[in-house]
Amino acid sequence: MPSWAELPIGQVVRLDADPDAVALALDPLPDDAPAVVTYFAAGERSVADLAASVLRELDKAAIALFPAWLPGAEGIEGPSGVNVAAVQALALRRASVTGHFGPFLAELARRALTGAPSALAPEVRAAGLVRVLADSFGRARLAVLVRVPDGLGAAAREVLVAGCEWLAHRGRAGVWLAGAPLHDDRVRTIATPLPANPLPAAAVGAREAVPVPGTADRAPAVAYPPVAGRPHPGSASERALEAALSARAWAGGRAWNQTYRPGPLAVPIRVDLLWERERCVVEINGPDHRAPAKFAADRQRDVLLQLDGYAVLRFPDAQVMTDMDTVVRQIGQFLRNRRRAEG
């Protein structure tokens, strides 16, 4: 079985594994894996539509992750002329020593502050966005895990494969398909480097439903990992909780999106929010945590953390967004009780 590092880049392949198992195995990213973002395909009608959709979503992710891919731009916010000039200068300087395409990186830095659309060609954007997203996670390569929905007709499957080939070749990204079968001779199936037991037994074979085109499905979207030390930029609830905690003196010592290893041979665990000294973990659960695979994996993670002395406080993201006072009060009460117990 290959390692994550051996999975091909610049090609379209199909993974021989359940997409939920793959997603769990990639959270947190294994040390040998490329950066991985997940694209939820939605049956686009043409290759041009698919390319435009993928680029739009990758672009949103890159801008949300700013300044992870532009060292030195931390704290530069707002579309003032001085700020725009500063980030463009940083981008051109970084491009000169890293091999990034300077005009692309400077434009992306400017747009991260101003929200303006890109004026560059799709091919330029594809290559630039792939490299920027890989940089955001400290990786040299990027793979796009494409979740294939059930119910695609022959024409939609043809569009999906052709669009993925365009992204792989123009962006030099790995494109890994998972989900519904495609029955396309152009796409070879490869072994997936999953742990021996990637899912708890209760979750094996269980899958979260992927929207079917033509139903009340959501727009195509990209999911991507968090950057260690920051709330996930794609999570409104994490960002709102951090804003609330930043005003509380007792909340000091917190760290967002940390990787924790229960033992030297154990599979690492990524936790949303950690107070290490108080051995307190806070998890914010979106709707995806109700899917059987993720629900079972959450319970397994909780047990491992609890056996190592951690308390795990879980809050639905809807509660964080609508009843922040209660969430903050409960976290604060737990931390104060732990600190008193420690003397």
Rank of each mutant, 00 (worst) to 15 (best):
L65G: 09
D59S: 14
L15R: 03
V54Q: 13
V37E: 11
P19M: 02
D20W: 06
D27H: 13
V47A: 13
V22L: 02
G10Q: 04
I63A: 13
L58N: 04
V12T: 05
P34G: 09
A21K: 00
L15I: 03
V54T: 11
V13K: 01
V37C: 14
A61F: 02
D20C: 10
R14D: 00
A52G: 14
L58I: 05
A68P: 03
V37D: 13
V54R: 13
I9E: 07
V12F: 03
R14I: 06
Q11G: 08
S53C: 06
L55I: 01
L70W: 06
L50F: 13
L65M: 10
A23H: 06
D27T: 13
Y39I: 08
V13N: 01
D16T: 12
P34R: 05
I63L: 15
P19D: 02
F40T: 14
L65I: 01
P30C: 06
L15E: 02
D49N: 08
I63H: 12
A25F: 01
L70P: 10
G10W: 02
P19Q: 03
L26C: 02
D16M: 12
I63M: 11
D18P: 12
D32I: 04
F66A: 14
K60S: 14
R14K: 05
I9N: 13
A17N: 03
G43D: 10
A17C: 08
L15N: 00
Y39E: 08
D49F: 00
L65A: 10
S46L: 07
D27A: 14
D59I: 02
A61E: 07
R45L: 13
P30V: 04
Q11N: 11
W69E: 06
A48Q: 15
A25S: 09
V36R: 10
Y39Q: 09
L55P: 02
R56L: 14
E44W: 10
A21F: 09
S46V: 06
L70Y: 07
D20P: 05
A52E: 14
A21M: 09
G10L: 02
A21T: 05
R14Y: 02
D27C: 14
S53A: 15
D59A: 07
A61H: 05
A51M: 12
F66W: 12
A64I: 03
V13A: 03
I9K: 00
I9P: 05
A62Y: 00
A23D: 12
L24I: 13
S53Y: 08
V37Q: 12
I63T: 12
P71T: 09
W69K: 07
L24G: 09
A62H: 00
L50P: 03
S46P: 08
A35E: 06
D16C: 12
A25C: 03
V12P: 01
E44Q: 15
I9A: 10
R56S: 15
R56W: 11
L50V: 04
D20Y: 04
D31Q: 15
D20K: 00
T38P: 00
D32T: 01
L50T: 03
T38N: 10
A52H: 15
